[in-house]
Design a protein around this nucleic acid. Structure first.
Lengths: 191, 191
DNA sequence: ACCTGAACACCGTTCAAGT
DNA sequence: ACCTGAACACCGTTCAAGT
C-alpha cells in the first residue's frame, strides 16, 4: 500500500517540526529561534522546513493551532467550575505562552495567514466570554462592550505579569462589575 | 564661542534623526524601517546613526520619549473634560501609534532600556488612572485592581481597532463599572 | 516526493580611516 | 568630534541538484 504510506510519513515529519518549533518558540521566543534551529531539532536542514511550510509564519500558525487545541480541551474539562476559577486557570495557562501572543500581535500586519488565525482566535474567545456574561445575567445590549472589556483584561493579564493575589483581585473585580451591570442594566433609561 | 556651538549642533542632528525615525516608525513600522533608511532621511549614512545612538532600540526609546511628551501635554490641556471624553481622546491619540506599542511589547525582552521605558510609561499611565478612580469615589482597597483593568482595557482598545460607537460603549461601560464599585464597595463584608 | 549544499538578499552593527 | 566606505555576522528564503 504505497498510496497511503507517504501521506502518513508526511504528517509524522511535519509533526516533529511543529513539536520542535513549539518548544523553541515558547522557551526562546519566535525571533530568537532560527529556522535552521527548528530544522536541526527535527533532524533536517533549514531548507527542508520550507518543503513542509511556506515560510516561518506558517510554522507559527501550525504551532498556535496545536497549542490552542490543547487549551480548548482544558477549558471544556473545567466548564463546571465557577467563572472566577475558570478565568484564573485560563489566564495561568495562556500566560505560559505570553511571548507568542505578543509575537502574533507584532506579525499580524506582515502575515496574512497569521491575521486570519488571530481573528479566528478572538472570535472563539469572545464566544466563550459572551456565554459566561449571558449566564451572569448581563443583558444583550451590554454584552458587546463587556465582552470586549473581558478580552482586553485577559490579554492584558497575559502580557503583564502580576502576582496571584493581584490576578485574583482583577478577575473578581471584573466579575463583580459584570454582576453590577446585570443588576442595573441600561445606561440612560432607568434613573 | 566654540565651547557651546558643538553641543547645540549635536542636539540638532540628533533631533533630525529622531524626527525621521518617528515618521518612519509610525508610518511603516519598526521592523520595516532600516537603520540605513533612518539615516538617509536625516541626511547621513547608517553608520552615523550609531554615533548618536547605541543601537536601533535606543533610537526607538528616543522616539517614544518624544511622542509621550507630546501626549502628556495634550492630556494636561484636557484635564477639565469629563472622564469618558478624556479617555476616548487618549485612546484615539494613542491608537495612531498602536504599531509602536506592539513593538515595545515585542522588544522589552530583548532590550533593557526599552524595558525601563515601558515600566516608566506604565507607572505614569497608572498614576493618571488611579487619580480618576479616586475622583469617581472608588475606595482605596479596589483601586489597584480597577487601575489594572483600566490599563488593560485602554491597551486592548489601542491594539484592537473598534468603531467609534463600540469604543464609546466600552469606555462608558468601564466608567459605569467604576461608579458601581464606588457605590457598593468591598467584596465580602457588606452584602 | 523528499531532502540537501550552496548561494542570494537583506540588515544590524563594527572598524579603520578620513576631516 | 563627527562622518563614511567597506566589511562582518546572521538569517530567512530560494534554487539547482541529488535520491
Amino acid at each position: 500500500m504505497p498510496r497511503n504510506r507517504r501521506p502518513q510519513d508526511r504528517e509524522e515529519k511535519r509533526g516533529e517540526i511543529v513539536a520542535a518549533a513549539t518548544r523553541l518558540f515558547v522557551d526562546e521566543g519566535y525571533d530568537s529561534t532560527t529556522v535552521a534551529r527548528i530544522g536541526r531539532e527535527a533532524g533536517v536542514t533549514s531548507n527542508t522546513v520550507y518543503w513542509y511550510f511556506k515560510d516561518k509564519d506558517e510554522v507559527l500558525v501550525a504551532v498556535l493551532d496545536a497549542l490552542f487545541a490543547q487549551f480548548l480541551a482544558g477549558v471544556a474539562q473545567r466548564s463546571a467550575e465557577p467563572p472566577v476559577e475558570q478565568l484564573l486557570w485560563a489566564v495561568g495557562e495562556l500566560r505560559r505562552v505570553d511571548r507568542l501572543i505578543t509575537t502574533v500581535h507584532a506579525r499580524v500586519a506582515a502575515s496574512e495567514s497569521l491575521r486570519v488565525w488571530h481573528d479566528g482566535f478572538h472570535a472563539q474567545v469572545e464566544a466563550v466570554l459572551r456565554w459566561h456574561l449571558a449566564a451572569l445575567g448581563v443583558p444583550e445590549a451590554e454584552q458587546d462592550a463587556m465582552t470586549r472589556i473581558g478580552v482586553f483584561v485577559v490579554e492584558g493579564m497575559l502580557t503583564h505579569t502580576g502576582d496571584a493575589e493581584g490576578d485574583r483581585a482583577v478577575v473578581e473585580t471584573l466579575v463583580r462589575s459584570a454582576r453590577g451591570i446585570a443588576a442595573v442594566p441600561g445606561s440612560a433609561d432607568s434613573r
